[in-house]
């Protein structure tokens, strides 16, 4: 069995966000593998290590620096990596276009049986692209998964719903997206980092995968940081008195009670 994991390079979650010239500034910001994608990569490697798969391949859409994220996945234990890029893909709001590109690349990478990804990217917060590609490819999906078994031509997964969980089965090939409790991603050891250097990383243009990008459904017209808070109004006094005063403020001033 071959597993494909789609990943995205994102800012570290601690990054301070600044806007520069109408775009999010990446100046001095460390970029990492999207944390939810890392769970997906770890899961794929685990499946391979337990004999459930022969090959783990990672795929990303991203500019040259995204190659570093792929290298990290290779150092974790993936066997090969693919990166698709075209400068026209740099604009935000192009989830529809990304899904077309992703589906094209996944089509070219066939045959594979399992598609894994993080359930959301921590930067754009969209959770659209890979599901949309799955529809185009005609495969079922189980999203936001915290437990996964693969075997007998199907996946059995526990997925997070609003306020409850479900055990779900789907036939292979299928898409599964990972949530944080799925596993604890390993950090690559130095010998594996060095081995990763020799693993294949293929770069594809849109032409290589036979896709025409088309125009994006959305264009970004504005970008802003949230308004700065001025700090809390501190309710003074003995704890018990302050508690009563606070309740009163919430009732009469903030009107939330």
């Amino acid at each position: 069995m071959k597993i494909v994991v789609t990943i995205k390079q994102t800012f570290t979650t601690e990054a301070k966000i600044a806007v520069d010239g109408g775009a999010i500034s990446d100046k001095g910001i460390k970029q990492i593998v999207n944390p939810y994608d890392e769970f997906a990569v770890e899961q794929a490697i685990k499946i391979k290590e337990s004999g459930g798969a022969e090959e783990v391949v990672v795929l990303t859409i991203g500019p040259e620096r995204a190659g570093e994220a792929l290298r990290q996945c290779l150092a974790m234990g993936a066997d090969a990596a693919f990166r698709v890029w075209d400068d026209s893909l740099a604009a935000p709001g192009a989830w529809d276009v990304y899904a077309t590109v992703l589906a094209g690349a996944l089509e070219k990478m066939k045959p594979w049986e399992l598609l894994l990804a993080g359930w959301v990217a921590v930067d754009d917060n969209a959770a659209i692209v890979v599901q949309r590609a799955a529809e185009t490819l005609g495969i079922p999906q189980v999203l936001v998964v915290n437990k996964l078994d693969v075997g007998d031509g199907k996946v059995t997964a526990v997925r997070e719903m609003d306020g409850y969980r479900e055990v779900v089965e789907a036939p292979l090939p299928a898409l599964v997206t990972a949530d944080k409790a799925l596993n604890t991603p390993r950090y690559p050891t130095l010998p594996n980092i060095m081995k990763a250097k020799r693993k294949p990383l293929t770069v594809w243009t849109l032409e290589d995968i036979g896709v025409t990008a088309g125009s994006a459904g959305f264009t970004r017209t504005g970008l802003a940081l949230p308004p700065a808070k001025t700090g809390a109004k501190i309710v003074e006094g003995e704890p018990e008195e302050a508690a009563v005063a606070l309740a009163d403020l919430l009732h009469t001033e903030a009107k939330v009670i």
Partner: peptide, 14 residues
Amino acid sequence: TAEQRMLRDTVRKF
């Protein structure tokens, strides 16, 4: 190099 940066990440995570 990319490997040296990755090594730094690994140590930091450790």
